[in-house]
């Protein structure tokens, strides 16, 4: 192999402007984290809601939940991103449509965050539903018997346990969201993947550019894992054995 390594490339100036490649990478890391965190917030909130609906004693609510999950789960993420970016704005009311297409600030960021958040919410909803349904039926009965309403029963009794049970699969989803945020390069968000490609083109240093992206994705995903493990430890229930009745 005849590759010319250049470890100084990160400190080199980009061809146009007085920034260094390192500045690009830092800003790209910022976008990756911003998109991932916003999407994760959306995914957790909507996932909890939709997962709950799917266990509700009302078939219309269950149906809404099913349509949601199947819709976001069965279309490739990249296709969803293009739909949100290119197609959805066409169907908005005229005024809004023009604003989205011409003036909306950070349009790529919002589109990516919403798209990734909704996509992941379907997967979180599935985990939350499974968590709720793994609880003994008597828990809901006992809660209702004490005078809690059904929403209170979910709020105080079912969801706190369901969430604890599904922390491990949720950890994977959190890590996935960080890795999946790389699709946002396709609509021009200047996140890590986009910038590493840009850096390859401008500097010609393929390995160094990809190495930076790889390392930073790994660190982010690993940090997400550590955060979730910490939460898992902090919320562990003394004496509770998962799966026991």
């Amino acid at each position: 192999m005849n590759y010319h390594w250049n470890w100084h490339v990160y400190l080199d100036q980009v061809s146009a402007g007085d920034e260094r490649y390192l500045d690009w990478i830092i800003s790209a890391l910022g976008w990756t984290i911003a998109v991932s965190m916003s999407a994760w917030l959306i995914a957790l909130t909507l996932g909890a809601l939709i997962g709950t609906l799917r266990t509700a004693p009302n078939r219309w609510l269950v149906a809404i939940g099913n349509v949601w999950v199947e819709g976001f789960r069965n279309v490739p993420l990249l296709v969803q991103l293009f739909l949100w970016f290119f197609v959805v704005p066409e169907f908005l009311p005229a005024e809004l449509s023009r604003w989205v297409k011409q003036d909306m600030p950070a349009k790529e960021f919002f589109t990516a965050a919403i798209c990734l958040g909704l996509f992941t919410s379907a997967r979180v909803a599935e985990q939350v539903r499974a968590g709720i349904q793994s609880l003994p039926r008597g828990q809901k009965m006992a809660s209702l018997a004490m005078g809690f309403t059904l929403p209170q029963t979910y709020r105080y009794v079912l969801l706190p346990m369901a969430f604890r049970i599904v922390i491990p699969p949720l950890t994977s989803e959190f890590m996935n969201i960080i890795k999946n945020s790389s699709v946002a390069f396709a609509i021009g968000l200047m996140e890590l993947t986009f910038i590493s490609r840009q850096m390859i083109e401008e500097s010609g240093q393929v390995f160094e550019s990809l190495l930076a992206a790889t390392l930073l994705y790994t660190i982010c995903a690993f940090s997400a894992n550590r955060v979730m493990t910490y939460i898992e430890k902090r919320t562990r229930v003394p004496g509770y054995i998962a799966g026991a009745k």
């Binding site: 003994p136 008597g138 828990q139 009965m141 006992a142 809660s143 209702l144 018997a145 004490m146 005078g147 809690f148 309403t149 105080y156 009794v157 706190p160 346990m161 604890r164 919320t235 229930v237 004496g239 509770y240 009745k245």
Partner: peptide
């Protein structure tokens, strides 16, 4: 719910809420 709050019920499998302390179980409702 209002009626049930005044009717105590005890189940075969206890059905305490596992994520709350004993006193938490007694105070939440």
């Amino acid at each position: 719910p209002k009626l049930r709050a005044r009717v105590g019920m005890v189940f075969q499998h206890f059905e305490l809420f596992p994520h709350m302390s004993i006193i938490g179980n007694l105070t939440i409702a």
